[in-house]
Amino acid sequence: MNSTLTPPKSKLWWNEPVEKSELIWISIVFVWGLVMSFMMPYWHVTGNQNLSNETYKTTPERFMSKAQSFVDEYTVRNEGPRNYPVVKPPPGGDVYMVARLWDFWPIVELEKDQTYRFHLSSMDWQHGFSLQPANINIQVLPKYEHVFTLTPNSAGEYSVICNEYCGIGHHMMIGKILVVE
């Protein structure tokens, strides 16, 4: 009479046969693990959603000056309650977005089905780039410039919401991306 609370009855418990139901389940689970392991590299080859990890060390000053030149070059108008510049880069071009306490700057206007190279960094603490309602969520770190591409697939007004807690103004941190036909 042994239980899970008592020492195994047989001292050589590792030689005892395994239950058949256990063997069946272990085989299923093992194959499933292989399927799931396969899916990630498979999606890298065939899928359209693979977040790049191209990253450069930077400083808030350096990143801000690059973002400023981007804004200076491509601003088409100012709008919204904050009177922020709306910046429209050429299709395929670079987009700089600054995350800082507590907003995303500037407003960006993109064309549908065009691919843009985003550069994202934080001026201060950690932030979260949460593009809604597309629901794309990326961590933003200070002193790291993250470069990835985004290809909007439908037109409309999108919000960028901070979803990494960044102090008392966290819930005020919001920005906009506009997608036009």
Binding site: P81, N163, H170, H171
Partner: peptide, 17 residues
Amino acid sequence: PRRHWDITFSMTGGVVH
């Protein structure tokens, strides 16, 4: 978003989602 006090964005001066 997680850890977020106000998903109505009432404090942003009009930039809302």
